Amino acid sequence: MKQTLITGTKLINGNDLYYEYYKHSSQKETLLLIHGFLSSTFSFRRLIPFLKEEYNVISVDFPPFGKSGKSTKFIYSYDNIAKSIVQLIQVLNINKITVIGHSMGGQISLKISHLRPDIVENAVLLCSSGYLKRSKLPLVFSSYIPYFHLYVKFWLSRSGVKQNLKNVVHDHSLIDDEMLYGYTLPFLENDIFKGLTRMIRHREEELSENELGEIKTPCLLIWGEHDRVVPLSVGKRLNQDLKNSDLIVLKDTGHLVPEERPNDVFNHIHTFLKRKVPSYQ
């Protein structure tokens, strides 16, 4: 059975969206991977090798992260990012997807599920963000100050990539040079900080309890027991508000579950999807 890797960018809503598409020659269910805040498709590097053997897999860098565009005209809201990703999927002629989102990518996955239940068959939320309010008005107003992006750069660089990784990975022995380089690379140019400044300005509050309750899509929630970024309490609350959901807790695991427990995450996803009756594109 032949499998092809297609990489590229598509101009969507005035910004380039970078994607990696592992496509089988035969019909397979299509999984859409959406990374978290300050990350990229790199964060799925240990999970994709498992997924691509069984499914078509698309991993996308949502703006302004990874290899996607950092346009200073793009609206960096959940709503616009979600709609842009849906447009990318349509450009690639895909009609049905399972969304798999990590952290902020989980919230974008929920947004897509809420906006387009006609195309989302299942959702998998890996330590998904939830219930965040929008940035406070003083910070939003400050984002209009000239060169504010340099302050954003300074704020993010204070702790450094290695310290940030220690905060999201429970087993610090996993942090090696490859991981450090992969998570550092996107931040070596200033344009990303201009995009992040606009994200501060545009990011709306996350889906409310009522909006979550409107989502009928089957959802699987996978959480790290020791998640210090999005605590397990958020996962339990999402599990209550999403009417058709299951929650799995991984022991001795932090926030970065695709890096820490890729085999276990794959097995749980595969078991979850096998219970469903897929309708291929």
Score class of each variant (00 low, 15 high):
Trp155Pro: 03
Tyr144Ser: 15
Leu132Cys: 09
Leu156Pro: 00
Ser159Ala: 13
Leu156Arg: 00
Tyr144Cys: 11
Phe141Tyr: 12
Gly130Ile: 01
Arg158His: 14
Tyr131Glu: 03
Lys153Gln: 04
Thr184Ala: 09
Asp191Ala: 07
Ser143Tyr: 11
Asn167Leu: 04
Tyr151Val: 10
Val140Leu: 06
Leu174Tyr: 12
Asn190Leu: 11
Leu132Glu: 09
Asp171Phe: 06
Tyr147Lys: 11
Tyr144Trp: 15
Phe148Leu: 12
Asn190Pro: 02
Ser173Thr: 14
Ser159Asp: 15
Asp191Leu: 04
Pro146Asn: 06
Leu137Cys: 07
His170Tyr: 15
Asn164Gln: 12
Ile145Met: 07
Lys162Asn: 15
Val168Met: 04
Leu180Glu: 13
Ser142Thr: 13
Ser143Ile: 07
Arg158Ala: 09
Glu189Lys: 04
Glu178Tyr: 15
Lys153Glu: 01
Ser128Phe: 00
Pro138Lys: 01
Asp171Val: 03
Pro186Leu: 02
His172Trp: 11
Phe187Leu: 02
Ile145Thr: 05
Asp171Pro: 01
Cys127Arg: 00
Ser159Cys: 10
Pro146Ile: 06
Leu150His: 13
Tyr151Asn: 05
Val152Arg: 00
Thr184Ile: 03
Arg134Lys: 09
Lys133Glu: 07
Asp171Gln: 10
Leu188Phe: 05
Gly182Cys: 08
Val152Glu: 01
Phe141Glu: 11
Trp155Gly: 08
Leu180Thr: 08
Ser128Gly: 03
Ile175Glu: 07
Gln163Gly: 15
Leu137Gly: 06
Ser142Asp: 09
Cys127Pro: 01
Asp191Met: 02
Val168His: 00
Ile175Asn: 05
Lys166Met: 09
Val168Phe: 01
Leu137Phe: 08
Ser143Thr: 11
Phe187Thr: 04
Ile145Ser: 01
Gly182Ser: 10
Asn164Lys: 10
Asp177Gln: 13
Val168Gly: 00
Leu174Ala: 06
Leu139Ser: 05
Asp177Arg: 08
Ser129Tyr: 02
Asn164Met: 12
Tyr131Leu: 06
His172Pro: 03
Asp171Cys: 01
His170Lys: 15
Asp176Gln: 09
Gln163Asp: 15
Tyr144Ile: 10
Arg134Val: 01
Phe148Trp: 06
Leu150Tyr: 12
Val169Gln: 04
Asp177His: 13
Ile175Met: 07
Ser143Leu: 12
Gly182Val: 06
Phe141Arg: 12
Asp177Tyr: 07
Phe141Gln: 12
Glu189Thr: 06
Phe148Thr: 07
Tyr144Ala: 13
Leu132Ile: 09
Glu178Gly: 14
Ser157Trp: 02
Leu180Gln: 14
Phe148Val: 10
Ser143Asn: 13
Val168Pro: 03
Leu180Ala: 14
Pro138His: 04
Leu137Trp: 09
His170Leu: 11
Val140Gln: 03
Tyr147Val: 09
Leu185Ile: 07
Phe187Ala: 02
Val140Cys: 04
Ser142Asn: 13
Asp191His: 04
Phe154Val: 12
His149Met: 06
Gly160Tyr: 10
Lys162Asp: 14
Leu132Phe: 11
Leu180Cys: 14
Trp155His: 14
Asp177Leu: 11
Ile175Tyr: 04
Leu137Tyr: 08
Ile175Val: 10
Ser135Lys: 01
Ser143Gln: 12
Gly130Asn: 02
Leu150Trp: 10
Val168Tyr: 02
Leu165Gly: 05
Tyr144Val: 08
Glu178Gln: 15
Ser157His: 05
Glu178Lys: 15
Ser173Arg: 08
Leu185Trp: 00
Ser129Cys: 12
Leu132Met: 13
Leu185Cys: 03
